[in-house]
Design a protein around this nucleic acid. Structure first.
Lengths: 254, 254
DNA sequence: GAGTGGTCTAGACCACATT
DNA sequence: ATGTGGTCTAGACCACTCA
């Protein structure tokens, strides 16, 4: 590896390491890379500083190629996403399984609710507006975190106006068979149309803490509105997903 | 600002800077923050190193709160997303405008094709599989970049098997009114069902280059399959979006 | 207890933007 | 010409993992 003036060393190291990872050099056993200190030795023709090696490893982490475990080392990463199919979730009857582009276990793994909190409190401004309630008006909030294989992957909050939730199990911890939508349906407010909005950005410090992410990890911020026959919004849900763990699928059948 | 052993200085600086940005301290004029060197002075009670200040600024950039311009400085960032509505794009007739959660200019800004390249070549493995063609088989590839206000925001490649594209303007630079789907429809291969897959991750070095992103910026990787009446996939599109510039909207009407 | 990634220091030079 | 963010050096200590 040669170096000319004005080039960026960390990028050269990253390029070479990427080549080695993709060539399968570290695929045996626990798929562990050399330690940062060892890499400084290996690349001493290019750089002599641990910071530069770290920066190069950061590039590969950004690309999803490797991951770091503190006190342990750097490892080749694997992408095994949780498939999240909107049509399947919202209209189970309309959905017919279709193949994904990526090679994934389409079955999906079990997602468990971890830490449900039901509150009756004012919602954030944009949620209140979407629900058509006053900014100060209290609504039911069902706040929970989802875990897969013991790892938190998503934070979700559902907002339901009192008008639709009162005298139903929506205000309780356990909503019973079929969940919130089944209870809304029984109360005559069954949602029939939905809108999902998806935005992708890097995690805030609070989200890093909540979901156990790395600094600078991307999250998906998702809003869902559920509408009754007459167009009234009966539920707004706000979700923060660990982006590295999900594949979102949207089917538009005939 | 005090500091105890074991805490992370860059996070303390980030927290304080976030508070100042949100309080509107830098909202006048060009919304410029103090230079890194000035910030080292301002926070010399916490840290004495420029690297630590940079790390703190990196946290706020990750959160989308500020952005850096080389040779110029750090600025308060603004999120003005391009709204990308799947139903509107795929089924203009089924779509009825619905309000967004975020305060955005729903009209959307003009997106222009910049640099169209039409090729006849073998497609990547997963695309070939989705199209149901052999790995070696050549397909038509329409590769282009989209720009908004002169800034590149998306790279898109459409893959169409020769079987559907030959003897149509799909193989030419200009596909004519209505684009690829209109030509497919005329040829009796009109797509009637679609699937979109969305994944979010950090940009690779090549994508950073192509879209003019910052290192460690998130992108949206999107695949779309377009299906004919009989379920045959007539087009696969692969898109890389600058995640900071888009809001994806998925409508599910009754 | 040895090894690891994460954070931090106190500087330096570069390419680029603005004046 | 000056100031800016981006990169780099050559170390150091810390919290953590693992054998």
């Amino acid at each position: 590896m040669e170096r000319k003036a004005g080039e960026r060393k960390y990028r050269e190291v990253a390029d070479d390491l990427r080549r080695r990872v993709n060539a399968g050099e570290f695929n045996e056993g626990r798929r562990k890379l050399p330690s940062e200190r060892d890499l400084v030795q290996e690349y001493k023709a290019t750089t002599t500083s641990a910071m530069t090696i770290r920066q190069a490893l950061g590039v590969l982490r950004d690309e999803g190629l490797v991951e770091s475990r503190v006190g342990s080392g750097w490892y080749v990463a694997e992408w095994r996403p949780i498939v999240r199919n909107a049509l399947e979730r919202l209209f189970p009857d309309r959905w017919t399984a279709a193949r994904s582009m990526w090679e994934v276990d389409i079955e999906g793994r079990d997602m468990n609710v971890e830490d449900l909190r039901v509150q009756f409190a004012a919602a954030p401004g944009e949620v209140a507006r979407a629900l058509g309630v006053g900014e100060e008006e209290k609504v039911w909030q069902r706040n929970r975190r989802y875990v897969v294989d013991g790892v938190p992957v998503m934070r979700a909050v559902s907002f339901i106006p009192d008008e639709y939730a009162r005298n139903t199990r929506i205000t309780e911890g356990d909503t019973g068979e079929g969940g919130v939508y089944a209870r809304l349906r029984e109360a005559g407010h069954g949602p029939v149309a939905f809108q999902e909005q998806v935005r992708c950005r890097l995690a805030t410090a609070a989200e890093v803490e909540d979901l156990g992410l790395a600094n600078g990890a991307p999250v998906v911020e998702q809003y869902r509105k559920a509408m009754r026959e007459d167009g009234c919004v009966v539920e707004v849900a706000r979700m923060i997903l660990d982006a590295s763990k999900f594949l979102l699928v949207y089917d538009f059948p005939r």
